[in-house]
């Protein structure tokens, strides 16, 4: 009897010392982990940056090829998320995979081989991004670090918004050179909106509701936007290449030099460095107005 009580007590202590199940909201439904993961594979550069920023990097065993920041993330073992292969990832024996996309059925493929997946789809505004940081904090046991990161980001972003003088300026954001643009319902578009800019892509019907709409060259030229941001500078677009396009030399933004190249790695992610992006955009706006 005495030994049984000891057993029960021992079991209780064991359970207490282990973590209780973790449940978070993933974009593929609720996800529950029985214990804290310590072999995480990140298939998303954004979430790799977040994991490193909240001091959860020691839990990361492999990252996607595009995870190039911070430098330490670049040095982790690599997997290829673009050419997704479930066996390549299973070979790393992860106890959690974090991904931003489910184009190829990554979530069900990984779940089928018993690997838990946390799907955090691209954020559509800063609040979404903050929430994803908090989720990663909860999952990795770094909630305090996550809360600190969010509050410092929030403070800086609000301060930057107050210094921007973008009212009444129009903006064209180029996602790529076939003139896909981002309207105000996208993450970047929401930042432009909060900085007071008026986005020329908002007047174009968004049939798929993706927020990414293709503009015609005629439309961009006729709108003569005050500011042009290039999300495709990494693919070789620049103020020179824009100005060399037929008819674009008549644009006010080209003539005044109000064409700005964004760092594609930062502009395409919704992580800790988004604050630097906001700062770059505010500097650009204030140099024009």
């Amino acid at each position: 009897m005495k030994s049984l009580a000891g057993c029960l007590l021992g079991l209780a202590v064991l359970v207490m010392s282990c973590t209780s199940p973790i449940t978070v909201d993933s974009d593929a439904g609720q996800m529950t982990l029985d214990e804290r993961p310590d072999r995480i594979v990140s298939l998303s550069a954004t979430h790799t940056e977040i994991l490193f920023a909240i001091a959860a990097d020691h839990l990361v065993v492999a990252t996607d090829l595009t995870s190039n920041f911070p430098t330490a993330a670049e040095a982790t073992p690599k997997v290829d998320a673009f050419n997704f292969n479930v066996e390549e990832i299973a070979a790393v024996e992860p106890d959690l995979v974090i991904t931003a996309f489910n184009f190829l059925g990554e979530v069900s493929a990984l779940q089928a081989v018993g690997i838990p997946v946390l799907l955090l789809a691209p954020a559509s505004n800063m609040e979404d991004a903050y929430h994803q940081i908090e989720i990663l904090g909860e999952v990795t046991g770094r909630s305090d670090e996550a809360a600190n990161l969010v509050s410092s980001m929030r403070t800086r972003v609000e301060a930057l918004i107050n210094t921007a003088s973008g009212d009444s300026l129009t903006v064209f954001h180029e996602v790529e050179n076939t003139l896909f643009s981002a309207n105000s319902s996208t993450f970047l578009g929401d930042i432009y909106r909060r900085l007071g800019l008026s986005n020329i892509a908002d007047a174009v019907p968004d049939d798929f509701g993706s927020g990414y709409v293709q503009l015609s060259e005629e439309y961009v030229i006729s709108q003569d936007p005050d500011l042009i941001f290039l999300g495709d500078a990494d693919f070789g677009e620049s103020i020179e290449s824009i100005g060399a396009r037929p008819g674009w030399d008549t644009l006010t933004a080209v003539r005044r030099g109000a064409v700005f190249e964004l760092d594609g790695d930062i502009a395409g992610r919704w992580g800790p460095r988004t604050v630097d992006l906001v700062e770059d955009i505010v500097t650009a706006i204030n140099s024009v107005s």
Partner: peptide, 14 residues
Amino acid sequence: SEQDAAIIWQLRAP
């Protein structure tokens, strides 16, 4: 306008 003229001559005509 200069922009509309460019649309006609630089975009549509070629």
